[in-house]
Amino acid sequence: MTSSSRPFDLQIKLLMIGDSAVGKTSLLLRYANDTFSSTFITTIGIDFKIKTIDLDGKRVKLQIWDTAGQEQFRTITRSYFRGAQGIVLVYDITDRGTFNSVRSWMAQINDHADAQVNRVLIGNKADFETARQVSTEEGQRLADEYGVKFFETSAKNDVNVTECFTTIAREAKARIPTDPNNNRQGQRLNSGRASGSKPGCCK
């Protein structure tokens, strides 16, 4: 039985955003496949991953959308916000510019995502302490300002990766009704159609 046909109680669409090269794909591949490579390819457009987890006694399927971070794709990226129930906003602790962009990303979330969407702020590449440009306190302060949870992560060393995804999934789950009939409905640019009878080919 593939992951797409395995039964689940709830499906949640998560969106990963943040500037280019902050490690969004690395975080996702660490979480979904438990792999890491320093030679990941640039994400152009969007990639998808599915991970089904047990969360507080419920089977929760996470449909995770990994977006391209570069400015040129912003017009297109906006359409991905539709239907997202949780947003993972990532910056790179070794690149202050990516931290400075967090406010702009938050504004995009306000403008284009559902009003109730859950958010989490991630400072990635925490393993690269010698190159740090953004302190943990600064990250925490900014997260507090927006009222969101904050993690410093390392996709390379697998630090806090599972925790951040579990946290955002738990917050979204608490908000979303668990009636499967409500949560398996497809939405435009899709928050998750129910899996049909055809098994997935490459999970």
Binding site: I50, R193, S195, G196
Partner: peptide, 15 residues
């Protein structure tokens, strides 16, 4: 010949 969004989203590139 995909049947669901999830199937096509996960497999399209490789396909």
């Amino acid at each position: 010949d995909f049947e669901t969004f999830e199937d096509i989203a996960m497999c399209f590139k490789k396909h």
